[in-house]
Write a protein that binds this DNA or RNA. Structure first.
Lengths: 213, 213
DNA sequence: TAGATTGTTAATCGATTAACAATC
DNA sequence: TAGATTGTTAATCGATTAACAATC
């Protein structure tokens, strides 16, 4: 039950480990030491070992880590060994782009439907994913098992829709709207704040130029 | 010249302060204390004061902070008081979505052109933003001042294009491809790794369910 | 002046790095 | 067995929080 809380910083690094290990695996390498991985990834070997040991001992003294095994184990930790059915709310440009992006499926994130309010989208589909109307949402969620709802709708409507989704039992929101959602404890929200990301870039440009003067 | 290095954690919080202050400003509030802001934003008042004091004393004892002034000052720190001309490389779904997203412009991030290789896009435009061909890129960059290049092209082509851009003098890359770019010291890269974000969400779903058992 | 709240120093907490005994 | 490399403890570093003197 009560597992030790893993820090956010560690979780944030896991997908990157997973990605590098996948590439190393594809290149046919069988084993790797924390030292080798360290130099590839530009993090310390110590950090790699500490991070991994939060979840258990995946390596072997004198040998290192078996790439395939470690890759799979990190996959399990991240939950990408399972299928995560998703729906996209908002059939605008962003919703379309996400639905068209095949990389998600490779990791088990499967978009089942797109919801929108625009009536001219009735009957359309994106890469085989049907576009449904928002008023069908609740009945849809009663029939179909959905784990993650992706929010790509206008800021003004997000809160209302999020509440509706939560009321229907959705426990995970991937939020692209530029606001913070206030949700119950058992609902997880991951934000993608593109404007914030751009501002951080802008800060770094500005501060770099300042330093040079 | 040699300013004290501001930590990444602080920079990451600045856009959020900026957003909240913008909303508070719009609601007509003139002054705010770190305590009030603290309860709105769910961070400690102490952190707010520490963060701000990295850049100077923006408040006044006994009074708090003038919302408009603080908002503007953070804007300057982030560089959103300036115009940042951008180009988008990759006219696919994502490039289109970004070009259509008007929120960037509000903060000074203006997309000037979209570049693609697909010849059927010649002469087209998105919201008035022209789509140009990749072979025009270098001559375009000689004529037009561009600060940020947005990379929304297939993984396989990103590195090559990034090098080309850097050779043309671009100093800032906003990278949507799922790989880490290796760039010179004077070039800044901000990554948007959507798959990583989704995996973090997935981890939190999985670990939450585990705890509940 | 008294009250409020900042700016800033000190204390605490957590994360990263270093070191090394355990062990393959 | 000797060499390599992990798992893990200890040391360091940095970030957050608490406390309070300065001051509006």
């Amino acid at each position: 039950m009560e597992e030790r809380q893993i820090s956010k910083a560690v979780i944030k690094r896991l997908p990157r480990y997973y990605r590098y290990l996948g590439e190393i695996l594809n290149s046919g390498v069988e084993r790797i030491s924390s030292g080798e991985l360290s130099s590839k990834m530009q993090v310390t070997a110590s950090q790699i070992r500490q991070d991994l040991n939060n979840f258990g001992g995946f390596g072997q003294q004198g040998y290192g880590y078996n790439v395939k095994y470690l890759y799979d184990e990190i996959g399990k930790i991240l939950g990408v060994n399972q299928v995560h059915p998703m729906i996209v709310i908002g059939g605008g440009n962003f919703g379309h782009a996400l639905a068209n992006y095949a990389d998600f499926e490779k990791n088990g994130f499967v978009i089942k439907a797109i919801f929108d309010v625009r009536e001219d989208m009735i009957g359309t589909s994106v890469r085989g994913i049907p576009v449904l109307m928002m008023d069908e949402l609740e009945s849809y969620l009663k029939k179909v098992d959905v784990e993650i709802a992706v929010l790509t709708l206008p800021k003004s409507k997000v809160k209302e829709v999020a509440n509706q989704l939560i009321a229907c039992g959705i426990k995970a929101l991937w939020n692209f709207a530029h606001l913070d959602l206030d949700v119950p404890d058992d609902v997880v929200v991951e934000n993608v704040h593109l404007v914030d990301s751009l501002m951080q870039l802008s800060y770094r440009i500005t501060s770099y130029e300042k330093k040079e003067k």
